[in-house]
């Protein structure tokens, strides 16, 4: 009898967790579709869009640059050391280029955007919710989805691919400086090898990933901000959950897009 009761409880808990997960997915999907539909319907807020371009794009440049340059530099050292095991040290420029452009550039920029931008958006909107600023927007005939979500998502869509492009270049240059300064590579040959090895599809995939990761980061920040519970604890939880959700979704989207672009 006790065993049956325990099994019922166990299965019930699994069922409740599964239903809760599907309900969460459903809410995120509805929020995403609602955001997309608001993109095409007036009124539009170009000033807020321009401000978000600055906040998401320009102010993220230092963290993106620093992340990329150190990753590119470390990658060059690793590939040189690993390649030395089978006399393949010469492939450093090619592997750094492919590694940065196809994978590390977009993923690290995406994760940095999730850390810097998603958290900032979620905390800001959650605070606005807790202090009734979202209600105030509504009473002033302004839809929070149009005024807050659409400018942020559109700005991230436009500017994160540019950040990824910049991150790719800085990452490759990080590898270049280490390879030419520490590992004895010829500067001109390094750059020539990099340029020769990269293909158009490598760059396209990198920029498409950047756009997708930007949208995910902004959407998660807006969604969890608007879903925030009351009080400081609610704001903290919304911020934490938004960053975790954005990071996991970015990594999952990265795998899916890599399959789409590069699977045999």
């Amino acid at each position: 009898m006790i065993l049956v009761s325990w099994i019922n409880g166990f299965l019930g808990a699994i069922g409740a967790a599964t239903l809760g997960m599907f309900a969460s997915i459903g809410r995120v999907v509805i929020f995403t579709l609602s955001s997309i539909s608001h993109i095409f319907r007036p009124p539009f807020y170009p000033k807020e869009f321009a401000q978000q371009l600055l906040h998401i794009g320009y102010f993220s440049l230092p963290v993106v640059g620093l992340t990329a340059v150190f990753t590119g530099a470390a990658l060059a050292l690793q590939i040189y050391a690993g390649g030395a095991r089978f006399n393949a040290e010469a492939v450093v420029p090619q592997i750094v280029a492919v590694g940065m452009v196809r994978e590390l550039g977009p993923v690290l920029v995406g994760l940095m955007i999730a850390a810097r931008v998603t958290s900032s958006i979620a905390a800001e909107i959650a605070t606005m919710k807790v202090t009734e600023q979202l209600d105030a927007l509504t009473t002033l005939s302004t839809n929070p989805m149009k005024y807050l979500t659409v400018p942020r998502v559109l700005a991230a869509l436009c500017v994160v691919p540019i950040l990824v492009g910049i991150g790719d270049i800085i990452g490759i240059m990080g590898g270049y400086f280490v390879a030419t300064g520490r590992l004895g590579f010829n500067a001109a040959a390094y750059l020539q090898n990099t340029a020769d090895f990269l293909e158009a599809m490598d760059i396209i995939s990198s920029l498409v990933k950047g756009a997708a990761f930007g949208v995910i980061a902004a959407l998660m920040g807006c969604y969890y901000g608007m879903q925030s519970d009351r009080g400081a604890q609610g704001v903290g939880k919304a911020t934490k959950t938004s960053v975790v959700a954005a990071s996991v979704l970015i990594l999952a989207a990265n795998y899916t897009l890599t399959e789409l672009f590069f699977s045999a």
Partner: peptide, 29 residues
Amino acid sequence: LAQFGMLFQGGALFDSLSVWQNVAFRLQR
């Protein structure tokens, strides 16, 4: 909603906007 004005308990002023932009919010849109 254009018929209504509302004073919220905590003010609910928009932190990112200056005082005059808060007051004129409806008048700029």
